[in-house]
Design a protein around this nucleic acid. Structure first.
Length: 541
RNA sequence: CGGGAUGUAGCUUAGUCCGGUUAAAGUGCUGGUCUGGGGGACCAGAGAUCGGUGGUUCGAAUCCACUCAUCCCGACCA
């Protein structure tokens, strides 16, 4: 600070000097100098403010939740905005989490009899219009390919679209693949022997969103979409429900993100579905996140694309369909479920790096020998380990860095530790640490990873139950949504009109009709009409 | 798509109202010295067509017009 002040004073002297050298414009210069002095003083104050602000790297949640979320995404290195509006670059840490999610889910799909395939990115425009509800749901956010060639700009530099290369039929960049897939299934399905057809694809899709947020809503995102065909309605419903279970299990067991399973109301359903099953998670700001959906599509697409099979009685019938998906949105849910004001917090099962080993104060041969040995032993247990070999950065900096990146366990190895035959083990979730005897450290760390996983789930569950409120009149309803946030359980008369009205008045929507909702006589919280069960309301992402 | 705000070095910004010196600072980056168990100190350096285009002016980061982008609040949506 003192140095800065001195520099400022020197600059002032310089100005005075300049002033003297420009006597011919004395009056103007004089006023200019005064102004210059004032503005420089402002700069000085501004700089002090910046320094103050930079002490806190991440905006606290209590101050601005959105900023906090963006800070985590950027400073932990999960993703960043790209040159393309609404599209993000997923960086190695963010993609590493997605890869782990993908690999677990893919295993679960395979275990339940599904296989992967890949369908085109482009969908002929005419396909999309074959199912009326479906097209209505997506028409407003489609990217359209109209041309297939560029040419040098005849008026100057750069390239322009070649007007002579207009496509006969425009192509839609898939917002979802039902249409192209059912157009294909038409040729694949002839007999009941071809059923069920259980296919999944990992792909990117594009929905031209007005407002985007990293992971939660981007114009392009990565997902999986399962599309299955069945001989009977019952079998298709069963499939949709089974996948619903898979999603819930994945969310709780791997993401440590508790979810409410339930069905969507008619107005919240997927465009073209007869029933949509959803898993709903609660974020730390009290807003709900739809984390995965599984749809029973009835025969809508089979009829639209004329997909028929011959049953055992040699009679033609339309097949019954499901589709289901989860996306990179899950990464956003993961961030908002566990992370804190220090940075990202990752559940060990999905963390790209589960354990980081830091030599203290810096890598040296003796310490590195122990680090390598420990790393190898942990790897042998199937644990994902990284050794920080950077000689330039200091341990304190590294600690802060890995906390920001959410690495679940940090092992510090220093000379003093080695003299005592211990290492220092720190856990990210509680930010606590202790010395552990080298002999037992592998088992200790392995157990700790499990404990962290359990603790994160328990903490998230506790948060959710603290933020779930049961109400019986509209005043309490509004107050709960407005002041406390979170899930609100209330009776609803079952009409879209009431649902809309409540949403208009409170911004809360029906997240789902929970599977485990008990049947009880009650009155709709808004209209007072009779209701048989409570549904789950919340403000949503 | 409506309302509001912001674009200046890799990042965070000051300066813009009220046009005028060689565009400023922190952080990050490079090299060096001393350091080293919770975001080190010092020294030296590199790094900016002030978002873009056009206009007004002797002179534009600063004023005007248009445009692009980002963020926030709505509507829409996974």
């Amino acid at each position: 600070m003192i140095l800065k002040t001195v520099k400022l004073v020197l600059r002032c002297l310089y100005i005075v000097n300049t002033l003297l050298r420009h006597k011919n414009r004395s009056l103007g210069s004089f006023f200019y100098s005064i102004k210059f002095l004032l503005t420089k003083r402002q700069s000085f104050i501004g700089i002090c403010q910046i320094i103050y602000l930079m002490a806190k790297e991440i905006t606290p949640r209590s101050e601005d939740y959105s900023k906090w979320y963006n800070d985590i995404v950027r400073k932990a290195g999960l993703a960043e905005n790209s040159a393309v509006r609404g599209c993000m670059v997923i960086k190695p840490l963010g993609f590493g989490i997605w890869e782990n999610m993908k690999s677990v889910l893919d295993g679960m799909f395979k275990d339940t009899g599904h296989v992967n395939a890949y369908f085109p990115l482009f969908i002929p425009k005419s396909f999309l219009s074959k199912e009326a509800d479906h097209v209505e749901g997506f028409a407003k956010e489609c990217a359209v390919v109209t041309h297939h060639r560029l040419m040098n700009n005849p008026n100057g530099s750069g390239v322009v679209v070649d007007p002579s290369a207009r496509l006969e039929e425009e192509l839609i960049v898939r917002p979802t693949s039902e249409t192209i897939i059912w157009n294909t299934y038409k040729d694949w399905i002839k007999s009941y022997r071809d059923l069920p057809l259980l296919i999944n694809q990992w792909a990117n899709v594009v929905r031209w969103e007005m407002r985007t947020r990293p992971f939660l809503r981007t114009a392009e995102f990565l997902w999986q979409e399962g599309h299955t065909a069945h001989a009977t309605s019952e079998e298709a419903v069963e499939e949709a429900k089974m996948i619903h279970e898979v999603y819930a299990r994945f969310a709780e067991d791997y993401m440590a993100m508790p979810v409410i399973k339930g069905a969507k109301t008619e107005s919240e359903r997927f465009a073209g579905a007869l029933e949509t099953y959803t898993i709903e998670a609660l974020m730390q700001d009290g807003k709900a996140l739809q984390a995965g959906t599984s749809h029973f599509l009835g025969q809508n697409f089979a009829k639209a694309f004329d997909v028929k099979y011959l049953n055992r009685d040699n009679k033609e019938e339309h097949v019954w369909a499901t589709s289901w998906g989860v996306s990179t949105r899950l990464v956003g849910g993961l961030i908002m479920t566990h992370s804190d004001d220090e940075g990202l917090v990752l559940p060990p099962k999905l963390a790209p790096t589960q354990v980081v080993i830091i030599p203290i104060p810096k890598p040296d041969p003796v310490i590195m020998e122990h680090a390598d040995k420990l790393s190898a032993a942990l790897k042998a247990q199937g644990i994902r380990v990284k050794i920080d070999r950077d000689e330039k950065k200091r341990p304190g900096f590294k600690f802060a860095q890995y906390e920001m990146e959410g690495v679940p366990v940090r092992v510090g190895i220093g000379k003093r530790d080695l003299e005592n035959n211990v290492v220092e083990v720190a856990r990210r979730d509680l930010k606590s640490k202790e010395s552990v005897a080298i002999d037992g450290v592998v088992k200790y760390v392995a157990d700790l990873l499990g404990e962290i996983q359990n603790n994160l789930l328990a903490k998230a569950k506790a948060f959710r139950s603290d933020h779930t409120t049961s109400v019986d009149n509209f005043e309490d309803f509004k107050s709960a949504i407005e002041n406390k946030g979170g899930f609100v359980q209330a009776h609803w008369d079952g009409t879209p009109e009431t649902e809309d009205k409540i949403k208009e008045l409170t911004k809360a929507s029906i997240r789902c009709i929970p599977n485990d909702s008990v049947l009880e006589e009650g009155k709709c919280v808004y209209s007072g009409k009779p209701s048989k069960q409570r549904v789950l309301f919340a403000k949503a992402y």
